[in-house]
Amino acid sequence: MTTTDSVPLRADARRNRERIVSAARELFAEAGAAVPMEEIARRAQVGVGTLYRRFPEREELTRAVAADYIERLAALTQAAAAEEPDAWRALRRLVRQCAAPQLGALSAALKVALPDAFIADPDLTRARLRWMAQVDELVHAAQADGALRSDIGTGDLILLISLLTCHLPELPAHLGRSLPARYLELTLDGLAAEPTARLPGVPITASDLGTASDSTRTAKCTQPRQDDR
């Protein structure tokens, strides 16, 4: 984290920082973390000079967005645990929220921009471990209740969330929009001790995939395209 993160800010400076991080979060999800700094300043409604005073380097801003992202994950986890009637329903809610288009796109952008930061940056690592501990409690509670299959671990669940935020860039637009929700429910149903959900959407046929280019077969995960959200 930057040294400015440990120094108390005046109220107006704090508001500006929050607006910048919020604008960057939105734009990273929309266009990736390489979006011009000037565009972030415009979205935040602050001057470019203000942005650079708070974040002299792009990586500092990206790390601030990453810290904000983890805080949001922790808040979502805490809310799900408090508001749902049991741990399994809390986990299902959390996975759906993590895989939602906006949050999923932000996760993909941060993975590209900071591939090693969640391991190399001590502050991000500590925050991520705290969030993982929250998820771990839900996993063990759901397994103790007999709702979640017993042969998976918390790491399995977190890696599945990462996979669910991936996107095959050459799929036809109508498939790109429908598949995340469909495969999310298929994944959740596979995690349950007993199947509980009906898949949304309709089965994808071989002819459906035939309308996509051959590059789909070997495409890497990318951020969702703008028309797929």
Score class of each variant (00 low, 15 high):
Thr3Ser: 04
Thr3Val: 09
Thr4Cys: 00
Val7Asn: 03
Ala13Asn: 04
Ala13Thr: 13
Arg15Glu: 14
Asn16Tyr: 00
Arg17Pro: 04
Ser22Ala: 15
Ser22Asp: 14
Ser22Val: 07
Ala23Lys: 01
Ala24Lys: 03
Arg25Phe: 07
Arg25Met: 04
Arg25Tyr: 06
Leu27Val: 05
Phe28Pro: 01
Glu30Gln: 14
Ala31His: 10
Ala31Arg: 14
Gly32Ser: 09
Ala34Asp: 15
Val35Arg: 08
Pro36His: 06
Pro36Gln: 05
Glu39His: 07
Ala41Thr: 05
Ala41Gly: 08
Ala41Ile: 04
Arg42Phe: 08
Val48Lys: 14
Glu60Ser: 12
Leu61Ile: 10
Thr62Phe: 00
Val65Asn: 01
Ala66Ile: 00
Tyr69Glu: 03
Thr77Leu: 05
Thr77Asn: 09
Gln78Asn: 04
Ala82Phe: 00
Ala82Trp: 00
Glu83Tyr: 00
Glu83Leu: 06
Asp86Ala: 04
Trp88Arg: 05
Arg89Met: 10
Ala90His: 03
Arg92Thr: 13
Arg93Asp: 08
Arg93Gln: 13
Arg93Leu: 11
Leu94Ile: 03
Val95Ala: 13
Val95Gln: 06
Gln97Ala: 15
Ala99Ser: 15
Gln102Met: 10
Gln102Ile: 03
Gly104Ser: 11
Ala108His: 01
Val112Lys: 05
Ala113Ile: 08
Asp116Asn: 09
Ala117Val: 04
Ala117Asn: 06
Phe118His: 10
Phe118Tyr: 10
Asp121Gln: 05
Ala127Asp: 12
Ala133Lys: 10
Ala133Asn: 12
Asp136Ser: 13
Glu137Val: 14
Leu138Ser: 06
Val139Trp: 02
Ala142Thr: 08
Gln143Trp: 05
Gln143Lys: 09
Ala144Ser: 13
Ala147Val: 00
Ile152Arg: 14
Asp156Phe: 13
Leu157Glu: 04
Leu159Ser: 08
Ile161Leu: 05
Glu170Leu: 06
Glu170Arg: 07
Pro172Glu: 13
Ala173Leu: 14
Gly176Leu: 03
Ala181Cys: 02
Leu184Val: 02
Leu184Lys: 01
Glu185Gly: 01
Ala192Lys: 01
Thr196Val: 12
Ala197Asp: 15
Ala197Glu: 14
Ala197Thr: 11
Arg198Gln: 12
Arg198Gly: 06
Pro203Met: 07
Ala206Glu: 11
Leu209Asn: 11
Gly210Arg: 09
Gly210His: 08
Ser213Phe: 01
Ser213Arg: 10
Asp214Cys: 08
Ser215Val: 12
Ala219Met: 11
Cys221Asn: 11
Gln226Gly: 09
